[in-house]
Design a protein around this nucleic acid. Structure first.
Lengths: 142, 142
DNA sequence: AAATAATTGTTTCCTAGTTGACAATTTCTT
DNA sequence: AAGAAATTGTCAACTAGGAAACAATTATTT
C-alpha cells in the first residue's frame, strides 16, 4: 500500500477557492442566459452604469480583466442588443462606450434580481462572514 | 447627476470571489504550461495519485466537475504524454485510467513545486486564515 | 517637420470547454 | 429471452476567450 504525502493547507485552500469560483461562474452564466447574455456582458453594463459616464473599451477591459480582443466581441453583442453604443471620440483611436436608454432601463429593472441571486448563493453568510471573506480574498497575492 | 443604488454586500462578495478565482485559474494555467499541461490535466493526475487505484473516466469527471467529453480530451493528452494509460475493464463500456510509472514519478517530482506555488500565492495567510477561508467557502450554496 | 514609438480597437487564427448525437455495452422490464 | 432503457466513452459542431498581426491614429524623438 502506497502512502501519499498530502498537499499542504495552502494548496488545498487554493484548489477549493478555484473550484468554488469555477462553480459560481457556471451558475452565474447559466442564470444570465435568461437574457441571452453572459456574466461578462452584464459586468460591462454594470461598470458603465457605475461609472455614470462613457468609458473607452480599454478602460472597460482594465476593470474586467479581459483581453482587448474579447472586449470588442462583448461590446459587439451589447451593441446588437441596443444596450450600449460606441461613440466617436476626439482621439480617433478611441471609442467610448455609452449605455443607451434601453441599457440603463435593463440594469435598473434587473438589479434587484441580480442582488437576489447573490443573496441566495450567500444565504448562509452573516454580514460579518461576508466582510471576513472579502478581507481574506484581498490577502491573496496579486 | 445620477445616483446609483449600490449592489448589496452579498453581490460584491460574489463578484470578488469569482474574479479572484478567475485570476488564480489564469495564473495556475500559465504556471503549468512549463510542463505543457493545464491545471486540469494536473488535477487528474493528482486525483489518480490520491485514489491510489485506477478510476473510470466517469469517476474522474465527477471529482473534477468537467463534462464527459472533456475528460476524454484531457486523458487523450495525458496518455500521449505517457502519464496515464486506459485499462480495459470487465464492464466493457468502462475504461479505467491508471497512472503510469512515469506519471507517478512526475507527480512525486513536482509536488513540492506545486506546494511552493500555492504557498507563494497564499503567503499573506496565517494557518488560521486558511482554515477560516475554507470554512467560509464551504458555506456557499451548492 | 519627418521619422519613429506607442496606443486603441479589430481581425484572424488557435485552444479549452460545452452540448448533443452516437456506438457499444449493460441493466431493467415484461 | 427479447425489447426497452440507462450508462459510458467518443465524436462533431459550436462557443467564449486569448495571442499575435494589423490598420488607424496620436505622441515622441530627432
Amino acid at each position: 500500500m502506497k502512502i501519499n504525502i498530502p498537499y499542504n493547507l495552502a494548496e488545498q485552500t487554493l484548489v477549493k477557492l478555484m473550484r468554488t469560483g469555477d462553480r459560481l461562474w457556471r451558475k452565474s452564466d447559466e442564470w444570465f442566459a435568461q437574457w441571452e447574455i453572459t456574466d461578462n456582458h452584464y459586468n460591462i453594463l454594470r461598470i458603465l452604469n457605475g461609472a455614470n459616464v462613457p468609458l473607452s473599451q480599454k478602460e472597460i477591459g482594465e476593470r474586467l480583466v479581459s483581453s482587448r480582443a474579447n472586449i470588442t466581441k462583448l461590446i459587439d453583442l451589447l451593441e446588437k442588443k441596443h444596450f450600449v453604443e460606441r461613440l466617436a471620440c476626439e482621439d480617433r483611436r478611441v471609442k467610448k462606450v455609452a449605455l443607451t436608454k434601453l441599457g440603463t432601463k435593463f440594469i435598473a429593472e434587473t438589479k434587484k434580481q441580480v442582488m437576489d441571486f447573490a443573496e441566495t448563493n450567500m444565504k448562509n453568510f452573516s454580514e460579518q462572514d461576508l466582510k471576513t471573506l472579502i478581507t481574506l480574498l484581498d490577502k491573496i497575492e496579486k
